[in-house]
Protein backbone atom coordinates (compact mmCIF):
# COMPACT_ATOMS: atom_id res chain seq x y z
CA UNK A 1 0.00 0.00 0.00
CA UNK A 2 1.31 3.43 -0.78
CA UNK A 3 2.23 5.33 2.31
CA UNK A 4 2.88 2.32 4.45
CA UNK A 5 6.55 1.75 5.12
CA UNK A 6 7.79 -1.64 4.07
CA UNK A 7 9.90 -3.53 6.53
CA UNK A 8 11.88 -5.35 3.89
CA UNK A 9 14.60 -3.25 2.26
CA UNK A 10 13.45 -3.48 -1.32
CA UNK A 11 12.88 -6.71 -3.12
CA UNK A 12 15.00 -9.78 -2.75
CA UNK A 13 16.70 -11.16 -5.79
CA UNK A 14 14.67 -14.34 -5.80
CA UNK A 15 11.23 -12.97 -5.20
CA UNK A 16 8.97 -14.73 -7.68
CA UNK A 17 6.76 -12.94 -10.11
CA UNK A 18 3.39 -13.80 -8.65
CA UNK A 19 0.88 -11.21 -9.76
CA UNK A 20 -0.06 -11.79 -13.37
CA UNK A 21 -2.51 -8.88 -13.32
CA UNK A 22 0.29 -6.39 -12.92
CA UNK A 23 3.23 -5.16 -14.91
CA UNK A 24 6.51 -3.75 -13.69
CA UNK A 25 7.38 -0.19 -14.62
CA UNK A 26 11.11 0.45 -14.47
CA UNK A 27 12.11 4.05 -13.88
CA UNK A 28 15.84 3.88 -13.51
CA UNK A 29 18.85 1.91 -12.35
CA UNK A 30 20.73 2.96 -9.23
CA UNK A 31 23.03 1.59 -6.56
CA UNK A 32 21.70 -1.32 -4.54
CA UNK A 33 20.40 -0.18 -1.19
CA UNK A 34 20.18 3.47 -2.20
CA UNK A 35 16.79 3.50 -0.49
CA UNK A 36 14.13 1.03 0.58
CA UNK A 37 11.08 2.77 -0.74
CA UNK A 38 10.29 6.20 -2.10
CA UNK A 39 7.68 8.36 -0.35
CA UNK A 40 4.12 7.68 -1.42
CA UNK A 41 3.99 10.67 -3.74
CA UNK A 42 6.38 8.92 -6.10
CA UNK A 43 5.29 6.59 -8.86
CA UNK A 44 2.04 6.20 -10.73
CA UNK A 45 -1.01 6.82 -8.57
CA UNK A 46 -2.55 3.52 -9.71
CA UNK A 47 0.48 1.46 -8.70
CA UNK A 48 2.11 0.12 -5.58
CA UNK A 49 5.08 1.54 -3.73
CA UNK A 50 8.22 2.47 -5.63
CA UNK A 51 10.89 0.05 -4.50
CA UNK A 52 14.20 -1.42 -5.59
CA UNK A 53 14.63 -4.62 -7.54
CA UNK A 54 18.06 -6.09 -6.90
CA UNK A 55 20.03 -6.79 -10.09
CA UNK A 56 23.44 -7.76 -8.74
CA UNK A 57 25.52 -7.06 -5.65
CA UNK A 58 25.85 -3.41 -6.54
CA UNK A 59 22.92 -2.40 -8.68
CA UNK A 60 19.16 -2.21 -8.33
CA UNK A 61 16.33 -1.06 -10.55
CA UNK A 62 13.79 1.50 -9.36
CA UNK A 63 10.49 -0.26 -10.02
CA UNK A 64 6.79 -0.10 -9.37
CA UNK A 65 4.05 -2.68 -9.75
CA UNK A 66 1.33 -1.17 -11.88
CA UNK A 67 -2.04 -2.74 -12.73
CA UNK A 68 -2.31 -4.29 -16.15
CA UNK A 69 -5.76 -2.81 -16.49
CA UNK A 70 -4.08 0.58 -16.89
CA UNK A 71 -0.69 -0.41 -18.21
CA UNK A 72 -1.16 -3.17 -20.75
CA UNK A 73 0.43 -2.43 -24.09
CA UNK A 74 -2.94 -1.77 -25.69
CA UNK A 75 -4.28 0.44 -22.90
CA UNK A 76 -1.07 2.37 -22.49
CA UNK A 77 -0.81 3.05 -26.20
CA UNK A 78 -4.26 4.59 -26.05
CA UNK A 79 -3.45 6.55 -22.93
CA UNK A 80 -0.23 7.95 -24.30
CA UNK A 81 -2.10 9.03 -27.39
CA UNK A 82 -3.93 11.53 -25.20
CA UNK A 83 -1.98 14.74 -24.59
CA UNK A 84 -3.05 15.04 -20.96
CA UNK A 85 -2.21 11.43 -20.16
CA UNK A 86 1.11 11.67 -21.97
CA UNK A 87 2.04 14.74 -19.97
CA UNK A 88 0.98 13.25 -16.66
CA UNK A 89 2.82 9.98 -17.40
CA UNK A 90 5.95 11.87 -18.40
CA UNK A 91 5.83 14.05 -15.30
CA UNK A 92 5.25 11.04 -13.03
CA UNK A 93 8.19 9.26 -14.59
CA UNK A 94 10.37 12.33 -14.23
CA UNK A 95 9.27 13.06 -10.68
CA UNK A 96 10.04 9.51 -9.64
CA UNK A 97 13.43 9.39 -11.32
CA UNK A 98 14.29 12.71 -9.70
CA UNK A 99 13.15 11.50 -6.29
CA UNK A 100 15.32 8.41 -6.64
CA UNK A 101 18.27 10.62 -7.61
CA UNK A 102 18.14 12.28 -4.20
CA UNK A 103 19.55 9.03 -2.84
CA UNK A 104 22.48 8.76 -5.22
CA UNK A 105 23.27 8.57 -8.91
CA UNK A 106 20.66 7.13 -11.26
CA UNK A 107 20.54 6.00 -14.85
CA UNK A 108 17.04 6.92 -16.09
CA UNK A 109 15.27 4.59 -18.47
CA UNK A 110 12.96 5.87 -21.19
CA UNK A 111 9.29 6.43 -20.54
CA UNK A 112 7.15 3.26 -20.57
CA UNK A 113 9.82 0.66 -20.03
CA UNK A 114 7.56 -2.12 -18.77
CA UNK A 115 8.01 -5.78 -18.11
CA UNK A 116 5.84 -8.79 -17.43
CA UNK A 117 7.15 -9.31 -13.95
CA UNK A 118 10.40 -9.12 -12.08
CA UNK A 119 12.09 -12.09 -13.70
CA UNK A 120 11.71 -10.62 -17.15
CA UNK A 121 12.85 -7.20 -16.00
CA UNK A 122 15.87 -8.60 -14.23
CA UNK A 123 16.87 -10.67 -17.24
CA UNK A 124 16.66 -7.71 -19.59
CA UNK A 125 18.42 -5.29 -17.27
CA UNK A 126 21.13 -7.72 -16.24
CA UNK A 127 22.10 -8.11 -19.88
CA UNK A 128 23.31 -4.49 -19.68
CA UNK A 129 24.98 -4.54 -16.27
CA UNK A 130 28.44 -3.40 -17.43
CA UNK A 131 26.87 -0.47 -19.16
CA UNK A 132 24.86 0.52 -16.07
CA UNK A 133 27.96 0.32 -13.90
CA UNK A 134 29.83 2.59 -16.28
CA UNK A 135 26.92 5.01 -16.61
CA UNK A 136 26.52 5.39 -12.85
CA UNK A 137 30.20 6.18 -12.50
CA UNK A 138 29.91 8.71 -15.28
CA UNK A 139 27.06 10.68 -13.69
CA UNK A 140 27.97 10.38 -10.02
CA UNK A 141 28.01 13.76 -8.32
CA UNK A 142 26.98 15.46 -11.54
CA UNK A 143 23.85 16.95 -12.94
CA UNK A 144 22.57 17.99 -16.31
CA UNK A 145 21.90 21.57 -17.36
CA UNK A 146 19.99 22.38 -20.51
CA UNK A 147 20.92 25.39 -22.60
CA UNK A 148 18.90 26.52 -25.58
CA UNK A 149 19.91 29.38 -27.84
CA UNK A 150 17.40 30.98 -30.18
CA UNK A 151 17.33 33.83 -32.63
CA UNK A 152 14.32 36.09 -32.41
CA UNK A 153 12.96 36.52 -35.88
CA UNK A 154 11.85 39.92 -37.00
CA UNK A 155 9.61 41.09 -39.81
CA UNK A 156 12.54 41.42 -42.17
CA UNK A 157 12.88 37.68 -42.24
CA UNK A 158 9.78 37.27 -44.35
CA UNK A 159 10.03 37.75 -48.06
CA UNK A 160 8.78 41.06 -49.40
CA UNK A 161 5.57 40.83 -51.33
CA UNK A 162 5.91 40.74 -55.08
CA UNK A 163 4.91 43.87 -56.98
CA UNK A 164 1.18 43.66 -57.54
CA UNK A 165 0.96 45.16 -61.00
CA UNK A 166 4.19 44.07 -62.59
CA UNK A 167 3.44 40.71 -64.13
CA UNK A 168 6.86 40.51 -65.71
CA UNK A 169 6.72 43.21 -68.34
CA UNK A 170 8.19 46.04 -66.30
CA UNK A 171 11.89 45.39 -66.05
CA UNK A 172 12.58 48.33 -63.73
CA UNK A 173 10.08 47.28 -61.12
CA UNK A 174 11.33 43.70 -61.35
CA UNK A 175 14.94 44.77 -60.78
CA UNK A 176 13.98 46.92 -57.83
CA UNK A 177 12.09 44.02 -56.38
CA UNK A 178 15.05 41.70 -56.79
CA UNK A 179 17.36 44.24 -55.20
CA UNK A 180 15.06 44.48 -52.22
CA UNK A 181 14.91 40.70 -51.95
CA UNK A 182 18.68 40.36 -52.12
CA UNK A 183 19.18 43.10 -49.56
CA UNK A 184 16.85 41.43 -47.14
CA UNK A 185 18.40 38.06 -47.78
CA UNK A 186 21.87 39.48 -47.06
CA UNK A 187 20.57 41.02 -43.87
CA UNK A 188 18.94 37.76 -42.86
CA UNK A 189 22.10 35.77 -43.49
CA UNK A 190 24.19 38.26 -41.53
CA UNK A 191 21.82 38.15 -38.58
CA UNK A 192 21.87 34.39 -38.68
CA UNK A 193 25.65 34.18 -38.81
CA UNK A 194 25.93 36.61 -35.92
CA UNK A 195 23.51 34.49 -33.90
CA UNK A 196 25.34 31.27 -34.71
CA UNK A 197 28.55 32.88 -33.53
CA UNK A 198 26.83 33.93 -30.31
CA UNK A 199 25.58 30.37 -29.79
CA UNK A 200 29.11 29.10 -30.31
CA UNK A 201 30.35 31.47 -27.61
CA UNK A 202 27.66 30.21 -25.24
CA UNK A 203 28.68 26.65 -26.02
CA UNK A 204 32.35 27.35 -25.40
CA UNK A 205 31.59 29.12 -22.13
CA UNK A 206 29.45 26.25 -20.89
CA UNK A 207 31.83 23.57 -22.15
CA UNK A 208 34.66 25.10 -20.18
CA UNK A 209 32.79 24.29 -16.97
CA UNK A 210 31.21 21.02 -18.06
CA UNK A 211 32.53 17.50 -17.95
CA UNK A 212 30.69 16.58 -21.12
CA UNK A 213 28.16 18.04 -23.49
CA UNK A 214 25.60 16.73 -25.93
CA UNK A 215 23.98 18.58 -28.78
CA UNK A 216 20.37 17.58 -28.96
CA UNK A 217 18.35 18.26 -32.07
CA UNK A 218 16.92 21.80 -31.97
CA UNK A 219 13.19 22.14 -31.49
CA UNK A 220 11.21 23.01 -34.56
CA UNK A 221 9.35 26.30 -35.11
CA UNK A 222 6.14 24.41 -34.35
CA UNK A 223 7.34 24.34 -30.76
CA UNK A 224 9.32 27.53 -30.50
CA UNK A 225 6.89 29.63 -32.50
CA UNK A 226 7.53 31.15 -35.90
CA UNK A 227 9.13 34.19 -34.33
CA UNK A 228 12.03 32.22 -32.93
CA UNK A 229 14.57 29.98 -34.57
CA UNK A 230 16.29 27.62 -32.20
CA UNK A 231 19.98 27.37 -33.03
CA UNK A 232 21.23 25.21 -30.22
CA UNK A 233 19.63 22.73 -27.86
CA UNK A 234 22.48 21.48 -25.73
CA UNK A 235 22.91 19.58 -22.50
CA UNK A 236 25.91 19.88 -20.22
CA UNK A 237 27.00 17.44 -17.56
CA UNK A 238 28.34 19.51 -14.69
CA UNK A 239 29.86 18.67 -11.32
CA UNK A 240 27.32 19.59 -8.69
CA UNK A 241 29.62 22.15 -7.11
CA UNK A 242 30.00 24.10 -10.33
CA UNK A 243 26.34 24.85 -11.00
CA UNK A 244 26.62 28.38 -9.69
CA UNK A 245 29.68 29.05 -11.83
CA UNK A 246 27.79 27.78 -14.85
CA UNK A 247 24.80 29.97 -14.09
CA UNK A 248 27.03 33.02 -13.75
CA UNK A 249 28.90 32.35 -16.97
CA UNK A 250 25.72 31.68 -18.92
CA UNK A 251 24.06 34.77 -17.57
CA UNK A 252 26.95 36.85 -18.82
CA UNK A 253 26.98 35.11 -22.19
CA UNK A 254 23.23 35.61 -22.44
CA UNK A 255 23.47 39.29 -21.68
CA UNK A 256 26.17 39.70 -24.33
CA UNK A 257 24.07 37.88 -26.90
CA UNK A 258 20.86 39.78 -26.19
CA UNK A 259 21.93 42.71 -28.36
CA UNK A 260 21.96 40.40 -31.37
CA UNK A 261 18.35 39.28 -30.69
CA UNK A 262 19.73 36.03 -29.38
CA UNK A 263 18.01 34.44 -26.42
CA UNK A 264 19.71 32.02 -24.04
CA UNK A 265 17.47 29.78 -21.96
CA UNK A 266 18.85 27.66 -19.18
CA UNK A 267 17.10 25.00 -17.15
CA UNK A 268 18.34 22.59 -14.57
CA UNK A 269 19.48 20.77 -12.68
CA UNK A 270 18.11 17.77 -14.51
CA UNK A 271 18.75 14.18 -13.69
CA UNK A 272 21.40 13.36 -16.31
CA UNK A 273 19.03 12.00 -18.95
CA UNK A 274 21.31 12.98 -21.80
CA UNK A 275 24.43 11.29 -20.48
CA UNK A 276 23.47 7.72 -19.81
CA UNK A 277 23.65 6.21 -23.23
CA UNK A 278 26.67 4.15 -24.08
CA UNK A 279 29.51 6.39 -25.13
CA UNK A 280 29.82 5.86 -28.83
CA UNK A 281 32.74 5.74 -31.14
CA UNK A 282 34.31 9.05 -32.24
CA UNK A 283 31.82 9.34 -35.07
CA UNK A 284 29.28 10.64 -32.55
CA UNK A 285 29.48 14.02 -34.20
CA UNK A 286 27.04 16.86 -33.63
CA UNK A 287 25.30 15.86 -36.82
CA UNK A 288 24.37 12.58 -35.24
CA UNK A 289 24.21 13.41 -31.59
CA UNK A 290 20.74 14.19 -30.41
CA UNK A 291 19.14 12.67 -33.46
CA UNK A 292 18.53 9.36 -31.79
CA UNK A 293 14.89 8.99 -30.91
Amino acid sequence: MPGLPRTTPGRSADQPCSDVASALWVFAVCHAGAFAELPSGAGHPEGGPVTLLRLDDLLSAVVQDVPSSRFSEEVLKQRLADPGELESCARTHHRTVTAAAEHGPVVPLPLATLFNGEARARAALCARLPHFHAALTRVRGREEWAVKVSLRQTGTASAPSAPQDAPGGQAGAGRAYLTRVRGRERERVARHEQAVAAAARVHRAASALAVESVQRRPHSPQITGKDRLQLMNAAYLVDRGRALDLATVLQRAGADAASADVEVEVSGPWVPYSFTEPVEAPDDSPERAGSRT
Binding site: P108, P110, L111, T113, L114, L125, T276
Partner: peptide, 12 residues
Protein backbone atom coordinates in the same frame (compact mmCIF):
# COMPACT_ATOMS: atom_id res chain seq x y z
CA UNK B 1 12.04 10.96 -21.27
CA UNK B 2 11.18 9.87 -24.79
CA UNK B 3 14.33 10.53 -26.63
CA UNK B 4 17.16 9.45 -24.40
CA UNK B 5 18.26 6.69 -22.18
CA UNK B 6 19.36 3.16 -22.44
CA UNK B 7 16.83 1.33 -24.52
CA UNK B 8 16.20 -2.03 -22.95
CA UNK B 9 14.51 -4.59 -25.10
CA UNK B 10 11.85 -6.35 -23.12
CA UNK B 11 8.61 -8.19 -23.56
CA UNK B 12 6.33 -5.36 -22.60
Amino acid sequence: VLGTGVVISGDL
